[in-house]
Design a protein around this nucleic acid. Structure first.
Length: 465
RNA sequence: GGUGCUAUCGCCAAGCGGUAAGGCCGCAGCCUGCAAAGCUGCUAUCCCCGGUUCAAAUCCGGGUGGCACCUCCA
């Protein structure tokens, strides 16, 4: 397995801290709103990593958190007069629904910030004891970045000019110091007890504390891989790495991976532009698997330009897999082709090269169709093809649907019956060489948006999308 | 202003120094009663200029264009 380390900026051989094991921590969403396409892409990127490592035989410990304390959540509370828990639980559930819809494997652990306040308190206490953290007059606690002589190394982004953009608080020792704890005032609705005063944690400390709590350091690192969106490198990951290093005496992660961004029709995704923003909006129109296939079809590090035309073109590629699956759906699975499995894994082992993986699948489809054209009823060929498709699903998370239902999605049973009756009539007409009637029926079906095809494996029909 | 990414066929997109994968679209053929589906074949010298090298889309320098982040946004 080779992965691109976005801090070292090179592709590296993945050497896990513990042989055959991998611990991955990915920054999850702040749950104050529904998941957007960017969340989907991030989840998808690391889901592919998760699946690939598992397929390679690693025992993977995959952690993805929920940030359920945050200014945006507090604002939502004020706007909606709902409690913190009401809001976060609602959006966590919605998030999980969306991720299920696009076939994201469940992480091994999904810690919430609110369940790990003690770990954060401990870490802040350690930093205060070391005089790396300090309290200012209003009760806020800051991290003293000057105590970490390699602060800024991770992102390489701390310039004078960057600093001028950071919020200035006069009592901070250094401009780049960041909040570990924000003291609460009397009318603050969200307030937690801690030995150093009431308040709530800063954003960065939660990930550090949860990693510290849920993992065991090996060889000077807490975890193997830390992941997240490209925007998180600075300041979030820089700060995480720094405070963890200072508090624990070892590095946070051996490898860092960052996924690229999603744009809509070439524009930055934002509410003000009114471009389709939420994953749910897309899922209302398209099946989750189609969205998954489209969003994962481009390398995770590249920026992704989402548009409907490309989505539909990408669906045509997935259709081909399902047309093949229709041809072999009447047998039980055997073992996938070793060559196919090996080359697919090899592609994904190269920093998740999905493009090469998809081209290998396309070649498999063409070869399989060729084999089936020559031997339409060869059970061994069919079994292996079906097994290949199952392996695709295991590794990449698509191709799992019943192939007939895939092409008939959203049609009512009554209509399906009607179609079947027409197909029987057409089959009879064809048998009697009454091609005029057969073509008339086909036109009738076409008018109903149904496409039919006579293959060596029988007559199939599809809903035209 | 700082930091970084990027420019490959009409569209999407691999390529990581050894002579351009794959998908969509298009054209031709095979198959088919005709279609559809499937299969086969055809379609690019890689933004521009210079350099390094036996050899560059791939490395270096300079342009030009696109984008992102630097604002607790994945």
């Amino acid at each position: 397995m080779y992965i691109y380390d976005s801090v070292k900026k090179e592709k590296l051989k993945f050497v896990p801290l513990v042989p055959n094991e991998a611990t991955i921590y990915v920054c999850g969403p702040t749950v104050y709103d529904d998941a957007h396409l960017g969340h989907a892409r991030s989840s998808l990127s690391f889901d592919l990593l998760f699946r690939t490592l598992k397929s390679l035989g690693f025992s993977v410990n995959f952690i993805r958190n929920f940030t359920d304390i945050d200014d945006k959540i507090i604002k939502k509370m004020q706007d909606s007069s709902k409690s913190l828990k009401e809001i976060t639980e609602y959006y966590i559930q919605r998030y999980n629904e969306d991720m299920d819809a696009i076939g994201i494997t469940h992480p091994t652990l999904t810690p919430k910030a609110t369940d790990n306040l003690e770990a954060m308190e401990d870490m802040i206490n350690i930093l205060m004891q070391k005089n790396i953290a300090y309290k200012i007059s209003n009760g806020d606690i800051y991290f003293d970045t000057s105590k970490d002589n390699i602060y800024g190394k991770l992102s390489n982004k701390v310039s004078e000019d960057t600093l001028s953009r950071i919020e200035s608080v006069s009592e901070k020792r250094n401009v780049k110091d960041f909040a570990l704890w924000k003291a609460c005032s009397k009318n603050d609705s969200v307030c937690f007890e801690a030995s150093f005063g009431k308040g709530r944690p800063g954003w960065h400390i939660e990930c550090s504390a949860m990693i510290q709590k849920h993992t065991k350091p090996v060889d000077g690192y807490s975890i193997d891989i830390h992941g997240g969106g490209a925007d998180l490198l600075f300041p979030h990951h820089e700060n995480e790495a720094s405070q963890s290093r200072c508090a624990t005496g070892h590095e946070l992660a051996k490898y860092w991976m960052h996924n690229g961004f999603v744009q809509i029709d070439g524009e930055k995704m934002s509410k003000s532009l009114g471009n389709s923003f939420f994953l749910k909006d897309t899922l209302e129109i398209y099946n989750g698997e189609i969205v998954r296939f489209y969003l994962s079809s481009i390398h995770y590090r590249n920026d992704f330009n989402f548009n409907e035309e490309d989505l539909l073109n990408s669906k045509k590629r997935l259709d081909k897999l399902y047309r093949l699956k229709k041809r072999v759906f009447d047998v039980s699975v055997s073992e996938p082709s070793l060559d196919f499995k090996k080359s697919l894994l090899e592609a994904m082992s190269d920093d998740l090269n999905i493009s090469v993986a998809l081209s290998i699948i396309d070649e498999m489809i063409a070869k399989s169709n060729e084999g089936l054209d020559a031997n339409p009823n060869d059970k061994n060929i069919k079994k292996e093809i079906l097994a290949n498709i199952e392996f695709i699903n295991e590794l990449l998370g698509f191709g799992y649907q019943n192939p007939f239902e895939y092409f008939q999605l959203g049609l009512e049973a009554k209509l399906k019956d009607q179609i079947n009756v027409l197909l029987e009539q057409r089959a009879k007409a064809k048998l009697e060489k009454n091609f005029e009637l057969a073509d008339k029926i086909r036109d009738e079906l076409k008018a109903m948006d149904i496409n039919i095809m006579d293959t060596a494996n029988g007559t199939f029909w599809e809903k035209i999308s």
